[in-house]
Amino acid sequence: MNLPAMKSRESIAVLVAAMLSLALVTPVTAESRADLEATRKAARAYEGSPPTIPHWYDPLDQSSCITCHSEGLDVGYGRPAPIVPHPTWLACLQCHVNRAEPGVELPENSLTGLGLTSGAHRAHSEAPPVVPHRVYGRDNCASCHAGPGTHEAIRTDHPERQHCLQCHVADTTMEYHMH
């Protein structure tokens, strides 16, 4: 691992972010952030682990997941299907599993999971925030930040600008540092 090279990439990222400081983001309230965390926690062991499936699916039908999740089908108010952020991965059930049957008592486990970041880094108050998570497996930004079912706390106010990484650059400190 070439650490100095990584550092220079990081400083370029910050510089680029500063230069392209065009976007404004709606401030996130404490309530909506808490709600975001609760929503994500319900489906995950920690941030970055694949969410569990909160509904039935047809175990014999390979296309049953993408029927709703490829385009984000609005299946009723309050229940839009989130768009898959990694459309080329085909074996959905490799990572996403159903939740426990009602009434099943789960084993006690004291894992403390890594949660959301406390906020994205900005070079200055007007600068576009740097992407505060890994981009791997999240090729489609819209699936969490613009599409149906996205949480208001992380919803973009400028979905019409489709080239997200033009202004929001990946935070290289998220990637492969060996400590």
């Binding site: 939740r99 009602p102 009434g103 006690e108 403390t112």
Partner: peptide
């Protein structure tokens, strides 16, 4: 169909 966690088994995150 929601996950039932036994009492005192709240998921902890930092």
């Amino acid at each position: 169909g929601s996950q039932v966690q036994a009492a005192g088994k709240e998921k902890k995150w930092i």
